[in-house]
Design a protein around this nucleic acid. Structure first.
Length: 466
RNA sequence: GGCCCGUUCGUCUAUCGGUUAGGACGUCAGGUUUUCAACCUGAAAAGAGGGGUUCAACUCCCCUACGGGCUGCCA
């Protein structure tokens, strides 16, 4: 039991689930699930100004969509503030921390002076070794009494052994003057109390880990295994931020990427198992190791994401895809499908799913089924057509109302219309597409030819829909 | 400024001292398809730069360049 793996995901509620955070959660989830361990969720909401219930809700929704289930209740870090303070007092009692009465102005002045002299700006509190009898009656913070000599070695599963000289680390504040804990203290206490054995997080925390290790040492707690994964960068190689576009996971759902594809793509981004690119959740859980995580930041590639998603759509069960479509429409704030549309789409799914990479693509290919009858070409677009295209269109429009063609009949109808005007099928599509701009019905007629050719039962279903 | 981490085709990556440096996405060229797409075949495409160590270096060490991170009573 003692070697059971416990991981956690500890996001701060910023209003949405960051795509990078989602990948961190995924890694933690894969590692725990792959080893029969536990995956916990903790919301780091100690910053009260920025924390709202809605923000937490967005994170839970994101994780749920991605299919990352967590064990036990969601822990609120804020709720545990008394416990954090208790630990701070304990460190004080052990002499591993001290009261610091320096004001923020004094600290700022210290840094200014240090900068001017080109020295380290790390604050050195005059209260570190002060006699308690000289303590003023004033607010104070509790600082960790960190070692000044020697070095701290982080044994990181991804980065290897990282050595930080202790003179590069300052006596960080653990408890603020208002009695609230800082992040540095809170993570350590929470991770320990929650029994976390493996801390898998972004490498922006790497250096801070050395500081946090001193708290573990002060409390004589075992230090968990650390694995600092590189952050995700935008296509330009810069740290992913809002200006790159989609950073929130819910935006990816709204763009119509299936969750299974997201999991696969995100897992493969910065982690590898040989040359395997496309895999199932079961394989990912089986194969996932911390050693397989790369050390360099990786960039988001939407083309590859799309490709992986396409493979997952093709491999998915039809009812799963129907659920995915429903979720997509909701996330994209689009109207839901009617019962008729649903049954038509369901029947066409075996054919549609082989060529769509995202849900919107799937829906676009199904437009012929989903479109309301009667179909009427746009008047303005009609006027802009050349005479040949216009006459082809007018010949075809009445035919579109009847949805019960066989493939052969369709071929005859469209082929004849084209041939009568000396055009090939290829020449035909463009003007028609233009004529029906805004409805994009025409391309789907040809899709329907393919569908009809492979599934005659569709003709009957469409008959009812029409 | 100081400290820490990183750097293989455009992108994600394989390689864990000896390979024609492999795969995937994308791109380009053909093919199939009575549109598009999908699909099939093929091609171009990489070890940041400079020093070492070694019989041998993409792999180990050092320097430089570039990118990122930390350096808060933010998380």
């Amino acid at each position: 039991m003692s070697d059971k793996i416990v991981t956690r995901f500890a996001p701060s509620p910023t209003g949405y689930l960051h795509i990078g955070g989602a990948r961190t959660a995924l890694f933690n989830w894969l590692f725990a699930r792959g080893h029969g361990g536990t995956f916990l969720l903790r919301i780091e909401d100690t910053d009260r100004a920025r924390s709202t219930p809605e923000a937490t809700e967005a994170i839970l929704k994101g994780l749920t969509w991605l299919g990352l289930d967590w064990d036990g209740d969601v822990v609120s870090q804020f709720d545990r503030a008394p416990r954090h303070a208790e630990v701070a007092r304990e460190m004080l009692a052990r002499g591993r921390a001290y009261k610091c009465f320096s004001s923020q102005e004094e600290i700022e002045a210290f840094r200014e002076a240090a900068r001017a002299e080109g020295k380290s700006t790390l604050f050195q509190s005059p209260w570190r070794d002060a006699d308690p009898s000289t303590y003023p009656d004033a607010p104070y913070v509790i600082r960790l009494r960190a070692p000044r000599d020697g070095a701290t070695v982080i044994q990181d599963k991804v980065q290897g052994d990282v050595t930080i000289r202790n003179d590069q680390l300052d006596d960080m504040v653990c408890l603020r003057s208002d009695g609230t804990p800082t992040y540095m203290l809170a993570v350590v206490v929470d991770d320990h109390d929650m029994g976390v054995t493996h801390v898998i997080r972004g490498d922006d925390h790497l250096v801070n880990t050395a500081r946090q290790m001193h708290i573990y040492h002060a409390m004589e707690w075992p230090v968990p295994v650390h694995a600092h994964i590189p952050l995700i960068h935008g296509p330009d190689g810069k740290k992913l931020s809002k200006r790159h576009g989609a950073v929130g996971l819910e935006q990816y759902q709204a763009m119509g990427y299936p969750a299974a594809g997201m999991r696969n793509y995100l897992a493969r981004l910065g982690w590898s198992h040989g040359d395997d690119e496309f895999f199932t959740d079961a394989q990912a859980r089986d194969w996932f190791t911390l050693e397989g995580i790369g050390r360099s930041p990786s960039r988001l590639d939407f083309k590859k994401l799309e490709n992986i998603c396409g493979q997952h759509i093709a491999a998915s069960q039809n009812d799963e895809l129907m659920g995915g479509v429903t979720g997509y429409l909701q996330a994209a704030a689009l109207p839901p499908l009617s019962a008729q549309q649903t049954s038509g789409l369901c029947a066409a799914m075996p054919i549609l799913k082989t060529s769509a990479k995202t849900f919107p693509q799937l829906l676009e290919k199904a437009e012929f089924i989903l479109t309301q009858r009667p179909i009427t070409p746009d008047e303005k677009a009609l006027k802009s057509l050349d005479s040949v295209s216009r006459s082809i269109l007018s010949e075809l429009t009445p035919q579109m109302q009847n949805a019960s063609w066989t493939r052969e009949e369709l071929e005859g109808i469209v082929g004849n219309a084209a041939n009568a005007h000396g055009l090939g099928m290829g020449k035909l599509a463009a003007p028609l597409r233009a004529a029906l701009a805004g409805r994009s019905v025409t391309p789907s007629i040809f899709d329907m030819m393919i569908i009809l050719g492979r599934d005659e039962t569709l003709a009957r279903i469409m008959d009812q829909a029409a």
